[in-house]
């Protein structure tokens, strides 16, 4: 009886510790971080047009150029959601994994597949402008079918290329915000 009470107490402690940890992680995830402004700058461009739908259509075309499939659209809120599945293996990583696996006699893991997601959001800004903000993220799976990475993609160059293509597509100059 006493042992089961001890086990119960231990279990409650662990469970409440875990939920505290989750709440702390969630609080941090929902708090604006100092780098948010810089990310917004990288991910956003302003166009001198009031035609939000034309910008959305052009963004859709660019996403298609990049091989994305559209998952969801809501033009009334200026939103497009798209994704694509791609190979995530690199020969260097696979060779490394096999060597480490052979040396340590452990199971070999290497990345196999990734899902890349993108959302494009347009919004009127000022009197005559419309902004476009695009954000990318990816989930990577290894050869055991486990998620080996899930992350936001924040490389500035990638966003620059996206907006260069978008500018060409709408025949408009993209301005930094």
């Amino acid at each position: 009886m006493r042992i089961s009470a001890l086990i119960l107490a231990a279990w409650v402690t662990i469970a409440s510790g875990l939920s505290g940890c989750v709440n702390e992680m969630a609080r941090e995830a929902l708090t604006l971080q100092p780098e948010a402004l810089e990310l917004r700058r990288i991910q956003t461009r302003r166009f001198e047009t009031k035609d939000e739908h034309a910008l959305l259509t052009a963004s859709l075309e660019v996403l298609q150029d990049l091989g994305f499939s559209v998952d969801e659209t809501e033009p009334d809120l200026g939103l497009i959601v798209a994704s694509k599945n791609r190979d995530a293996s690199s020969s260097g990583e696979m060779i490394g994994a096999f060597f480490i696996g052979a040396a340590t006699d452990s199971e070999v893991t290497y990345n196999v597949e990734q899902k890349i997601r993108a959302s494009v959001v347009t919004r009127h800004i000022g009197r005559s402008g419309t902004s476009v903000r695009v954000t990318f993220q990816r989930i990577v799976w290894n050869n055991l079918g486990e998620v080996s990475a899930n992350e936001s993609i924040e490389e500035q160059k990638l966003y620059q290329e996206f907006f260069a293509k978008l500018s060409t597509s709408v025949f408009l100059t993209a301005f930094d915000i």
Partner: peptide, 27 residues
């Protein structure tokens, strides 16, 4: 978007927005 989420879907009529944040976790 400022908080690092990528949108999943939105519907003006029903007034709903869903989004996912990936940063080692999935929120």
């Amino acid at each position: 978007q400022d908080l690092g989420f990528v949108l999943d879907k939105a519907d003006l009529t029903l007034g709903t927005v869903s989004a996912t944040k990936l940063d080692g976790y999935a929120m």
